[in-house]
Design a protein around this nucleic acid. Structure first.
Lengths: 344, 344
DNA sequence: CTGAAAGCGCTTACAG
DNA sequence: CTGAAAGCGCTTACAG
């Protein structure tokens, strides 16, 4: 029974309704007036046969697709999930359906998905999350995107400024991290460590640089061995915090470059018997929804995640006004919660 | 500049390479031997023109799609995210790309996505999350799925037994909840409340029934006003817990039908100054990754979420062996953590 | 308003 | 191994 059976086609419907192919197509698309009785017959035939148009044939024949593709690193990461939510809300308002893809930070797979979406002639492609600082990747991506754009496709991104010349929503990672540094300094901290992700991610290098900028204003710096690089995930944060303790380092304040990493770190500290914020202050970045439910709630730099999703979607939906790409900057806002306190 | 430009087609490549359409197609697909020099010319032309095959034309001409569609209620819910992760892992091993869709529990939109995937002739459609106990929805869904299946499509689901006759991975919600009830009774609790989601979701009604079953074995029951229904989300859990307190109810133990709802409840209790587990025990269901990072870590019924994702994907990938649908049951395992303790 | 027909961009027997 | 041609299932000018 595994054999492929023939699909019900428009021709089947037309025959059963005893009308021409063209007429059947017209009533099903509502594109033009059709006599009421013919119309009825077509509708009845379509229902009786459980007809579904073949989207490929439709697309090939010129009808436009209503699918929007969103590519991110990992949908199970709350940061992306929150942005995706905003994208979908806006897409729904415009009657568009959105399909999500996760690359798991595999550059090659990211290209595969773009190629697939491009091949499917998706109405728009949204790239969420920082790109790779890698010449090969940049070239390969541009090679996919340029022809797509030239043939009428829309592309918009969140945070990947380096190479792509497309519409973008850019969180001010550098400024936000600098502002956080200032707030932490104001609390009295002078001795910091940073739990960092891979430096090849622009988001990571921007936040790290900004944090250093902010500290530098007060003449404070972070020693190289106090910057610990790990995976850009909850487990990476846990590992980095563990490594910090293994090295016997005892800063008064730790900055994790994302909330997700901070969550792992918080648990590592808790399990090691280090009390936050009594013995150690901890701050993250992003303000993903869950951080308010942690104990203690996390100090962080809040980004309007849902809104950022709405904005990229709108960027891709709106007709481009010129040949220049549009850029919308989104500032971060420092939110002090109880995971940070004055050093003892 | 917004005008649609013509796409680069296979014909363009063939012309530039000075070969026939057929030859160009063959080298690009690697389906058969082509003389080395022709091969080179085609490859060079394709690269020079940044050619991407039109997936619609390919699909229409008979090539099979490598896309798998996964439809769930909300990808930003960690429960679905964890399952999706398992699905994608397995899909990647088989060289398949997966596209995710969120319905936000809108039954009509779910049908829309199935129709879209069906129209795109996706290789398989996976439905994750319990269905609606609603005759109209069941009929509409069956009307989409039956023709898809008949024409060779694969469908597999996680937890929606009632109406669909397709391959399924079924978590043992009822038994798991009963087992949790027994563990909680063993701790000494007799006075319970339940924070519940909409009863129309089979997952909810199964867990509620199972919990009652388990309690009933010890002659314990939950009064109707101790079962509070709210949205199936973190905020729903928060609202339900708040309502519980507003009613002045003080059970010794609260069961939230999902961990996500339990997270909201935990924060509501914390903010109200009620200490968990000292003054109140709290348990959830699912064992989503974050629960170990909460303070206190949550007692729950663990479901192997990643594995469940792998199993649905495998079900959809494997050739069906007969006309009967395959069902794989997945037991839950009670995990006692520090959010529950003996009543004072 | 309705129908015959061309065309969308591929793939794949079928000949050579 | 290579090419001419049919066909996949639609949509949409173009006639009538």
């Amino acid at each position: 029974m595994a054999g492929e059976q023939a699909h019900v086609t428009l021709l089947d419907v037309a025959k059963q309704a005893e009308v021409s192919l063209a007429t059947a197509s017209r009533v099903l698309n509502g594109t033009s007036q059709v006599r009421a009785d013919l119309r009825e017959r077509v509708l009845a035939a379509a229902a009786a046969l459980a007809y579904t148009p073949n989207a490929h044939a439709q697309a090939l024949a010129g009808a436009s697709s209503q699918a929007i593709g969103v590519i991110c690193h990992d949908v199970s990461d709350p940061y992306f999930a929150a942005i995706a939510r905003g994208v979908m809300r806006t897409a729904a308002e415009h009657g568009q359906l959105v399909m999500l893809a996760s690359t798991f930070r595999d550059a090659a797979r990211e290209i595969d998905y773009v190629a697939m979406l491009r091949a499917q002639r998706a109405r728009a492609i949204l790239l969420i999350g920082s790109g790779f600082e890698d010449r090969n990747w940049e070239n390969a991506m541009a090679a996919e995107l340029d022809p797509y754009l030239r043939s009428g496709g829309r592309v918009a991104v969140i945070s990947r400024h380096r190479s792509l010349k497309v519409d973008a929503v850019l969180p001010e990672n550098r400024e936000g991290a600098a502002e956080l540094a200032r707030s932490l300094l104001a609390l009295g901290h002078r001795d910091f460590a940073v739990l960092s992700g891979p430096h090849a991610l622009t988001t990571v290098s921007d936040r790290l640089a900004g944090f250093r900028d902010g500290l530098a204003e007060a003449g404070v710096s972070v020693a190289d061995d106090h910057v610990i690089e790990a995976a850009f995930t909850r487990d990476g944060g846990h590992a980095a915090a563990t490594e910090l303790m293994r090295r016997g380092l005892r800063p008064t304040c730790v900055f994790a470059v994302t909330d997700v990493m901070a969550i792992g770190a918080l648990t590592a500290f808790r399990d090691a018997g280090i009390s936050v914020p009594d013995q150690l202050s901890l701050a993250g970045f992003d303000d993903i929804p869950i951080v308010g439910d942690l104990t203690p709630p996390l100090t962080t730099v809040a980004l309007p995640l849902n809104e950022m999703g709405e904005r990229v979607m709108n960027l891709a939906l709106r007709e481009p006004r010129g040949r220049r790409s549009r850029v919308e900057r989104v500032p971060g806002r420092v939110v002090m919660r109880s995971s940070t306190a004055a050093p003892r």
